[in-house]
């Protein structure tokens, strides 16, 4: 349980944007440090635009970082010059937010599932590939599998599609899963089922998971540990139950107090105002200072460092 599968050091991802002819940067991911243990479910929590997806994409090598190191299974996978070995894709898989858009509309479902297996040499025999797919579909209660497999994506529901995209990834038997808000576009009624399917696979494969969400109740329900992001920066990292029972960072406290199913007395205490800021060339100081009810002068001048507070717990605030 204590070996790290993924280590991220000083990871930065800036997007250049042009504003009135001047070049500026969206600091979508700014100097992140964290590690994920084998078999662990690690939550990334934050509001829209805080850089969650960007983080997932960079780790999955779909985007390239400005600077920083990513170590995955003891291999450094960061750096532009890095050419991933053939098995990298098999070991790390990502589930995306939009199931309707995750399938090639011109391909039959089974082709979409089979192609990744074929490319990654998961099962060299075509016949047994199909068998494995059908079996897994049945296990996921996607029946009748044959009929579903020979449809086009637009003939399936969002819930079905998202289950199938989970299956597509899991058939590669990844050691590490990135799930980017994988239920946020689905109807509430099917969310639990999809999440359960994901968790079943994760348990079965004993893989670690980076679980990206903006929903604190889901995060605390599923994850072992949670990292709270705000405008590209880490606010707090802690065990789920610590986040829930005893949030330290003012932003975490605000998130907890907003959650409908959690804590009643916190609710009244922590209200924040304003919109989430886009980190375009942000001013010095704490990113959260503009909305923080506890903000003092120092918060606008000096950026708090992410300090160790107790066991397995870190927070970035001058007042904790």
């Amino acid at each position: 349980m204590d070996k790290n599968i993924l280590e991220v050091k000083n990871l930065k991802k800036y997007f250049p944007v042009r504003k009135m002819g001047k070049k500026q940067y969206v600091k979508a991911v700014d100097d992140l440090n964290f590690s994920i243990r084998e078999g662990e479910i690690f939550g990334v929590l934050g509001e829209s635009g805080c850089g969650k997806s960007t983080l997932g994409r960079v780790i999955n090598r779909l985007d390239f970082e400005q600077s920083g190191d990513i170590t995955f299974l003891n291999n450094v996978i960061s750096g532009k010059s890095y050419k991933s070995d053939k098995n990298f894709r098999k070991k790390m898989q990502m589930i995306f937010q939009n199931p309707y858009d995750s399938f090639d509309p011109k391909m039959l479902i089974y082709k979409s599932i089979e192609l990744p297996m074929k490319i990654n040499d998961v099962n060299s025999d075509a016949g047994s590939r199909i068998n494995e797919i059908v079996e897994t579909m049945n296990k996921a209660k996607l029946t009748p599998a044959e009929s579903l497999l020979t449809r086009y994506p637009h003939e399936l529901s969002g819930g079905q599609l998202q289950r199938i995209s989970i299956i597509r990834s899991m058939l590669l038997k990844p050691k590490f899963i990135i799930a980017d808000e994988c239920v946020s576009m689905l109807d509430v009624s099917v969310r639990a089922g999809v999440l359960n399917l994901l968790l079943t696979f994760q348990e079965e494969l004993n893989s670690a998971m980076l679980f990206i969400t903006h929903d604190i109740s889901v995060a605390t329900y599923i994850c072992n540990r949670i990292m709270v992001l705000y405008a590209g920066k880490i606010m707090e990292i802690a065990e789920s139950k610590d986040i829930l029972d005893n949030p330290l960072h003012p932003y975490t406290r605000a998130l907890v107090s907003y959650s409908p199913i959690i804590s009643k007395e916190e609710k009244k205490r922590f209200r924040i105002t304003g919109e989430v800021v886009t980190p375009i060339d942000p001013p010095p100081g704490c990113r959260f200072a503009s909305r923080c009810p506890m903000a003092k002068d120092i918060c606008k001048k000096e950026e708090p460092i992410l300090k160790e507070i107790g066991k397995n717990r870190k927070a970035a605030c001058h007042f904790v």
Partner: peptide
């Protein structure tokens, strides 16, 4: 997204 999926599955 399906292009991103393709990249992420190693195509």
């Amino acid at each position: 997204t399906f292009i991103t999926v393709a990249r992420s599955t190693g195509e």
